[in-house]
Design a protein around this nucleic acid. Structure first.
Length: 343
DNA sequence: TTTCTTACA
DNA sequence: TGTAAGAA
């Protein structure tokens, strides 16, 4: 039985901190008749983990949850990593615009407007990065996701050519042994897992906890991470290739450009990207296909298209080219396409 | 001496 | 979380 001072020095903290954790309900040491706190080995261990989690920025409230649910420390660490990545990206954005402001300021004289504009731009960028929300509630869809893939829509089957498309993506990427790939919006891992037998390390990113849980159960070898298109939990230039299927249409057309830049950030030079998704070849084609659905009175299709953000493939191609990529495209049907880009 | 509690920054 | 003050 140790008294608080001994514990504090041993763990390299202060007595105040230890009492504070008790106040927050994280630990309950035994109290003697003199009201002194006495700590056992178990208490020490617990305090040690509290301190460790605190060190990586987890709040006491989160730590409390983590400690109570015993089994899932990994899950909370995962979430914490994502949070830190988001903060990191935000800081990078801020530094970037400050650089631009300084440059403007040195160039010309009266450039307040430019600086205001840059600040405003930064603000919207921050909002986009944070403002991501799961409009379609994938957490609740997770369990039945693979089953629902097999079912066809009544008059509109978005998963027609699904397997062909996934196969084509892998065939284009040609993952090599030892390479690191990132599968964005990995869901239950249907696409990402196809890289595993080829010897690649796969990071599966998804914003839905439940999806990740299911994914991990199906494919234990996938390195599953919380995150989304606008804030990928991956370092700059870490990925040899990126895949994504049936996910980009959950991001608005405006955000898609930012999403491509985010992919560009994590991709190595010479890296490859394969995007398989519901999209239209271009604006004309979009009008043509929609008109077709209207003429046949296919409300189901029209509603589905309106509810989500099917990309304009020509825009994606254009953005990739601006970033210096070589781009190829492939159509599976009117609404299912692949964009393949090489850095 | 040591720890405790409470208040406040 | 750090600091301070009075009490046990």
């Amino acid at each position: 039985m140790m008294k608080i001072k001994e514990v504090a020095t041993k763990l390299n903290t202060t007595q105040r901190t230890i009492r504070f954790y008790e106040e927050k309900g994280l630990i309950q040491p035994d109290k003697g008749d003199n009201d002194y706190r006495y700590y056992t080995e178990q208490h020490l261990w617990k305090l040690q983990t509290i301190l460790s989690l605190r060190e990586v920025g987890m709040s006491t409230a989160q730590i409390k949850k983590t400690l109570m649910s015993e089994e899932e420390v990994g899950r909370y660490l995962n979430m914490q990593r994502s949070a830190l990545y988001e903060e990191w990206l935000e800081i990078k954005d801020m530094i970037g615009t400050i650089d631009q402001m300084i440059e403007k300021n040195e160039d010309q004289e009266l450039v307040k407007e430019d600086i205001f504009a840059l600040a405003d731009q930064l603000k919207t960028l921050k909002e986009k990065r944070k403002g991501w929300q799961d409009q379609w509630n994938f957490d609740s869809q997770a369990r039945g996701y693979d089953e629902s893939l097999k079912m066809n829509g009544y008059r509109f089957n978005v998963h027609e050519n699904y397997e062909d498309a996934l196969a084509k993506a892998i065939e284009s990427i040609r993952p090599l042994k030892g390479e690191k790939g990132v599968d964005i919006g990995t869901g239950t891992g249907n696409l990402g897992s196809k890289c595993l037998p080829l010897g690649a390390h796969v990071i599966g990113v998804d914003q839905s906890e439940e999806m990740l849980k299911v994914c991990k159960e199906k494919h234990p070898d996938i390195d599953v991470r919380n995150g989304h298109f606008l804030a990928l939990p991956v370092m700059d230039g870490e990925a040899d290739f990126i895949t994504t299927s049936y996910a980009l249409h959950h991001v608005t057309e405006q955000e898609k450009e930012l999403a491509l830049r985010e992919m560009d950030r994590i991709l190595k030079p010479k890296g490859r990207i394969a995007i398989v998704d519901l999209m239209f070849a271009n604006a004309h084609d979009r009008a043509r296909v929609i008109k077709g659905f209207e003429e046949e009175g296919n409300q189901e299709a029209l509603y589905a298209i309106e509810d989500e953000f099917y990309a304009d493939r020509s825009n994606l191609v254009e953005w990739f080219k601006q970033l210096g990529y070589t781009v190829h495209t492939h159509s599976f049907n009117d609404i299912l396409h692949m964009v393949y880009a090489e850095k």
